[in-house]
């Protein structure tokens, strides 16, 4: 059953031997040790497992790894560039947009993709775009504030 699959992850190339139907989430976490991407539900309901595939936010828990072969995969570990955090990461820190922070990776990845499609969103647009991500600790208002902060930064720079 196992195939050899070539994955482009965070700018590098990884070759894994796996059943192509295995979830991208399990391959990232168990084979590539990229544990920043989290499991929260396994049914595309919570967003904790969100990664970018060719720049689009995808739920890695329901993405068969085979379908991600050859595409550009970005995980939370790949956002920081040369020791410099992505503006969304910075904004989450500045706004203290986390408690247990288990949802944070998925929130940040969803927000990064969203801000690309809508660089200056309103609060309602943010809430709407983020509706699929659960924060059980209830830090939603701070997450909205963080995304807004990152968006302003984005338009300024």
């Amino acid at each position: 059953m196992a195939n050899v699959i070539k994955l482009h992850v965070n700018g590098g190339v990884q070759v894994v031997s796996t059943d192509p139907r295995a979830s991208l989430l399990s391959v990232l976490r168990d084979q590539l040790d990229l544990t920043g991407t989290k499991y929260g539900c396994g049914e595309a309901q919570c967003g904790a497992c969100t990664v970018l595939i060719d720049g689009h936010p995808r739920r890695s828990c329901i993405t068969p790894v085979g379908t991600a072969a050859g595409r550009q995969i970005t995980t939370i570990e790949g956002l920081e560039q040369h020791g410099k955090l992505h503006p969304v990461q910075e904004a989450f820190l500045t706004e203290e947009a986390m408690q247990c922070a288990y949802c944070t990776s998925g929130m940040i990845m969803t927000a990064v993709a969203f801000l690309k499609s809508n660089p200056s969103p309103t609060e309602e647009e943010i809430a709407h775009a983020m509706e699929g991500n659960i924060c059980r600790c209830g830090t939603y208002p701070r997450i909205v504030a963080a995304i807004q902060r990152a968006s302003h930064q984005g338009t300024q720079s």
Binding site: I76, E96, M98, A101
Partner: peptide, 16 residues
């Protein structure tokens, strides 16, 4: 005061 290890959380480094 901000979360002392906040950076580990926004970069996915923290090991739960």
């Amino acid at each position: 005061i901000s979360k002392v290890d906040g950076r580990d959380f926004v970069t996915g480094k923290h090991r739960y």
